[in-house]
Design a protein around this nucleic acid. Structure first.
Length: 269
DNA sequence: ACTATCCCCTGACGGC
DNA sequence: TGCCGTCAGGGGATAG
């Protein structure tokens, strides 16, 4: 589900509301969402009485900083975080944090692909690549230029660039006029520059719209993001390209649906 | 270090 | 109405 713009939106929402709150206890009915599934008791012990120092985003993870530990929440495909929901419908609720002041944070996830991890603040987190929103041009050029890899797959690889998922990668390649199957090594430095700019502009616009709610994703207060109605290619098969009127096509790239314009995103241009 | 494939899980939707 | 295939903002494991 949620990619960088959705997680960024959630984090901004939560930051102003749960920082400095103290955790009373946590609850789960789905052990498997803990990456080490015997981990729940350990997390419960550490979280109890902990104060939320900050909320941040690492790639597609929502990160809660306690004084000595960090809780990473990855929402998978269908996860959403709800802050003190009015509804008493508990179906699909997998995890809850109860704060001492009576407020609570629920993880709702139909498909159970969410993952929660705990790490100590000392240990390094070496798995995520450069953040897509802040990566500098020279770092980006190094990541792209040194590899010979299909560009869409490269952009989706969280270990190289973190935050981009299947919606925004197609939006970005459309904006940069690049065919999704282009090899990264075939991109000229002008093209790499276009791509770098497209990443920033697409993600910033999507954040401004508070993300894409075509299905599961919602803000923690249940409201929707508005990017879907202004998307350029994602799920627009058979419709006209906004740049040149050509018909948007759908192909599969590494098992993921991929939308592009055959006119201005020609292969091997 | 690559890819391709399957898997995790549940619900929605279209075709027959 | 029911059954079957396909699809969905993710990523990890495994085999070649």
């Amino acid at each position: 589900m949620p990619e960088l713009p959705e997680i960024e939106t959630i984090v901004r929402f939560l930051k102003s509301r749960i920082v400095s709150k103290t955790i009373d206890r946590i609850w789960t009915n789905t052990d498997r969402i803990f990456s080490d599934h015997r981990n729940f008791k350990k997390i419960a012990l550490i979280a109890k009485g902990g104060c939320v120092q900050n909320v941040d985003r690492w790639g597609k993870n929502v990160v809660l900083f306690l004084s000595k530990h960090t809780i990473l929440i990855h929402l998978g495909m269908s996860g959403k975080l709800l802050l003190s929901p009015k509804s008493n419908d508990s179906s699909y609720i997998r995890f809850k944090i109860f704060f001492k002041d009576g407020c609570d944070l629920w993880l709702h996830d139909v498909r159970k692909f969410s993952k929660i991890r705990l790490k100590s603040n000392q240990s390094k987190d070496g798995e995520l690549g450069a953040d897509a929103l802040t990566v500098s041009y020279s770092d980006f050029e190094n990541i792209i230029g040194q590899r010979r890899k299909i560009i869409k797959i490269l952009l989706l690889d969280q270990g190289l660039i973190s935050g981009i998922g299947n919606i925004y990668v197609d939006e970005i390649l459309w904006a940069a006029n690049i065919h999704p199957l282009t090899l990264s090594s075939d991109l000229s430095s002008d093209k790499i520059q276009d791509l770098h700019r497209a990443i920033k502009s697409v993600l910033r616009l999507a954040i401004k719209k508070r993300g894409t709610s075509f299905k599961d994703y919602r803000l923690p207060d249940g409201t929707r993001g508005d990017y879907y109605s202004i998307r350029k290619v994602y799920q627009r098969t058979g419709e006209k390209c906004f740049k040149d009127g050509a018909i948007i096509q759908r192909i599969k790239v590494s098992q993921r649906s991929t939308y592009f314009c055959p006119e201005h995103q020609r292969y091997r241009s």
